[in-house]
C-alpha cells in the first residue's frame, strides 16, 4: 500500500513536471509530436528508474558507510550521465529516426533536473530501496503522462485557429499552465 501511494504521489499528485516544474525543457521541446513525446517519456523513465535504483545503492551502500555524503551530487550525476550515454547508444542502434527526432534533448536528459531531483528527493525523504524504485517508476509515469498530454494538446492546436500572436510557443505555454492548474486539483490528496 505504501509503495502504491509513493507511485501515485510521484505520478499524479506531485507530478514532477506539472506540480514541481522539473524537467520543463523536454516538456516544451519534444512535445510537438505524440510519438516522439512518448518515446522521450520512455527514455526518461528508463533513466529515472535505473537512476533511482543505482543512486539508492550507491548512497546507502557506499556513501553513508564511508561518511561520504558530500559526494552525493557528483556520484549521482555520474550515474545519470552514464545511463543517458547508454540510452543514447541504444536508441541510435534501434531507431535512427527517433534518435534524430529527439535530437539534443536526448543528451540533455543528463542534466534534466527531474532526474537529479528524483535521486535527491529519494535521499531527502529517506525512502527505502523498494520505495525508491517505485518513486522512480511513478516519476517516470508522471513524466510520460505530462509529455503525452501536452503533445496531444499541441497536435490538436496545430489544427486549431490560434490568433497569430499566440501561435507556436506562447499557446503551448498557456496550455501547459492550464494543464498545471488542472493538476492542482490533485494537490494535498497524498502528502509528499
Amino acid at each position: 500500500m505504501e509503495l502504491v501511494l509513493v507511485f501515485l504521489s510521484a505520478a499524479i499528485v506531485n507530478n514532477f513536471v506539472l506540480a514541481y516544474f522539473l524537467g520543463i525543457c523536454p516538456f516544451i521541446g519534444v512535445s510537438g509530436k505524440l510519438s516522439s513525446a512518448f518515446s522521450m517519456g520512455l527514455a526518461s523513465t528508463f533513466v529515472m528508474v535505473i537512476a533511482a535504483t543505482v543512486t539508492w545503492l550507491i548512497y546507502h551502500m557506499i556513501l553513508v558507510p564511508f561518511n561520504l555524503e558530500f559526494l552525493q551530487y557528483v556520484s549521482f550525476i555520474l550515474v545519470i550521465a552514464s545511463l543517458v550515454q547508454f540510452v543514447e547508444m541504444f536508441i541510435k542502434k534501434v531507431s535512427q529516426p527517433l534518435y534524430r527526432a529527439l535530437g539534443i534533448f536526448l543528451p540533455l536528459i543528463t542534466t534534466n533536473c527531474a532526474i537529479l531531483g528524483l535521486a535527491l528527493f529519494s535521499v531527502l525523504r529517506e525512502y527505502g530501496f523498494l520505495e525508491s524504485i517505485f518513486f522512480g517508476l511513478g516519476a517516470g509515469a508522471g513524466f510520460i503522462l505530462a509529455l503525452v498530454l501536452i503533445a496531444g494538446i499541441r497536435e490538436e492546436l496545430d489544427l486549431a485557429e490560434v490568433p497569430a500572436q499566440f501561435k507556436g510557443v506562447p499557446i503551448t505555454l498557456i496550455a501547459a499552465g492550464i494543464l498545471a492548474m488542472a493538476f492542482m486539483g490533485f494537490s494535498g490528496l497524498i502528502s509528499n
Binding site: 557506499i62 556513501l63 564511508f66 559526494l71 557528483v74 556520484s75 555520474l78 550515474v79 547508444m89
Partner: peptide, 21 residues
Amino acid sequence: TMGGLGFIFAGALALADKKLS
C-alpha cells in the same frame, strides 16, 4: 570511491559501445 565508480561506469559504457555500435 569516485575513481572506482568512474571506472565501473566507464567499463560498462565501453562494453555497451562495442555491443551497440
